[in-house]
């Protein structure tokens, strides 16, 4: 069983002040630390767990600049057999383009797989599109928000998908397929520095990304960046307990946690 995992290196912005520069044209992420996209981490772990259980091998592919090698090393340290870097130094923002590049790559190299795992979304652009788009291009079945793989047979898998309000559904999907993995599906193993160092000894193949970009054009124009309306501390609800509680219930409803 072969599982391909797409994994992306992203800037970790959660703790940082993200600076918009050049009049909104750019984001300054130069000072941010980079890491593996959290969702992809779960996807890699799930892939590794799956092959540990059912045999086969995991191939990690990353589409990004040369530093993205880091996430491949990490994947290898976690248990991936090989790492392939589709090197594209300018970031690709449009998920449709990313999916097309991946599609071309897979086709060109005739990569054989039983399943492709991706994270549900990337922390940076938060599109959540790549997996589904790629599946459609490949004309293979797809499921997103996968929070459990219940069954893995030669021709199909049964997965659990997360729905809203604590609900989930179980679907059967034919192989080969693309699954977008949701966080919480597993507990990704810790990758030690020693592990990463060891993984560095496994060769990662690097491919020139521009080779897979023929005839692909982005139809999304990124005009500028802006800050969301500033939030100023906690919005205090009424001083009167009765009305405060009523407001509170409204908020809970709005957030969809209480109907």
């Amino acid at each position: 069983m072969n599982i391909v995992v797409f994994t992306k290196r992203v800037a970790a912005a959660q703790e940082e002040e993200l600076k918009i520069v050049r009049d909104g044209e750019d984001l300054d992420i130069s000072k941010l630390p980079f890491k593996v996209n959290d969702w992809d981490n779960y996807a890699v772990e799930e892939a590794v767990k799956t092959v540990e259980k059912f045999g086969g091998q995991v191939t990690a592919i990353s589409l990004g600049d040369k530093e993205s090698d880091e996430v491949l090393r990490r994947s290898i340290a976690m248990g991936a057999k090989e790492g392939l870097l589709i090197r594209k130094d300018d970031p690709i923002f449009d998920p449709a383009v990313r999916a097309n590049v991946a599609f071309n790559f897979i086709k060109k190299h005739n990569i054989v797989f039983d399943a492709i795992f991706t994270g549900v979304q990337a922390e940076d652009d938060q599109f959540g599109v790549f997996g589904g788009y790629l599946a459609a291009l490949l004309k293979i079945p797809f499921a997103s928000m996968v929070i459990g793989i219940d069954e893995w047979k030669t021709d199909h898998v049964v997965v659990k998908r997360e729905l809203e309000g604590g609900m989930s559904e179980r679907v059967r999907i034919g192989i080969p397929c693309v699954l977008s993995i949701q966080t919480g599906i597993n507990e990704p193993r810790y990758v030690s520095i020693m592990g990463i160092r060891k993984a560095s000894q496994v060769e990662r193949k690097v491919f020139d990304g521009s080779e897979y970009m023929e005839n692909i054009r982005s139809s999304i124009e990124l005009l500028r960046w802006s800050y969301p309306p500033k939030k100023e501390g906690a919005k205090l609800l009424s001083a009167d307990i009765d009305s405060a509680c009523r407001e509170l219930l409204e908020i809970l409803k709005e957030k969809g946690v209480y109907q």
């Binding site: 912005a13 993200l18 940076d124 938060q126 990124l222 960046w225 802006s226 800050y227 969301p228």
Partner: peptide
């Protein structure tokens, strides 16, 4: 970036 910025 988790609500940090909006893309136009």
């Amino acid at each position: 970036y988790s609500e940090k910025v909006y893309a136009h």
